[in-house]
Design a protein around this nucleic acid. Structure first.
Lengths: 120, 120
DNA sequence: CTCCACCGTTTACCGGTGTAATCGATGATG
DNA sequence: CATCATCGATTACACCGGTAAACGGTGGAG
């Protein structure tokens, strides 16, 4: 099941810390997104219907935690982008960024390090 | 204005070859997507409203061509993914792929080549 | 025991998207 | 010239997503 953009904001909050109550999630993300508490509740419910998160009772409230791992989500999204725009391959994407000069010197340094590791 | 997934199929066709008539676009993409000709027309119209493509009259029909450059579209989509999932930086994305072993030897070779070029 | 505050659930609504049928103009055909 | 086949334009409609208010149960306060 696809996670929408707004839903992913909730997921990110839970990936940062879980389990947490709806109130805590709202407190963290609602102001920045300009959301009301009601919006947070709706998104939590939709994520439960999609089985992306689960709830465990804690007294009178629920604590939520992710069922979908961030790794899996990131992998699917990234692969999707590569497939749609770069024939499924990573090198053309890197090439795109290098051409558009969006790489900081630190990026270049880290890329070099990664490549070196790949050889071992 | 945002280009939707279905619309991007039309864009890709026009990026491959333009200007072209609606019929030619449909002939190329409709069967693969399971679309009728009507669907192609609708998508073309929406892209015109979004000023992502333009039409020039050619006798009794129109020929369409992209106004939005593929480069710009790819750049926006890619940056969006990086921002949402990798703190806006490229290195973490590459790291993600290397960790999940999604890199072919050719990918690694090409990445090395790219990195070498970056130093110059 | 009663009422309230709180929390999750249900319902609402609008705009966008996927998918398509219908309409209306116009060039081609008999 | 009248009719037909074609195109693009208009309209349709259901579903999803963003945003939120209303509803309903229940634990705690008086």
């Amino acid at each position: 099941m696809k996670i929408s953009a707004a839903e992913s904001v909730i997921m990110e909050a839970l990936w940062r810390e879980s389990p947490r109550a709806a109130e805590a999630i709202g407190a963290e993300v609602a102001p920045g997104q300009g959301w009301s508490e009601g919006t947070v509740k709706t998104l939590i419910n939709r994520l439960m219907k999609k089985s992306a998160i689960a709830a465990q009772k804690d007294g009178r409230r629920y604590l939520y935690r992710p069922l979908l791992a961030r790794e899996a989500y990131v992998a699917a999204e990234s692969q999707g982008l590569l497939d749609r725009l770069f024939e499924g391959r990573l090198a053309p994407l890197v090439s795109h960024f290098s051409k558009s000069r969006k790489l900081t010197p630190e990026d270049v340094e880290e890329l070099k390090r990664l490549i070196r590791e790949l050889d071992r």
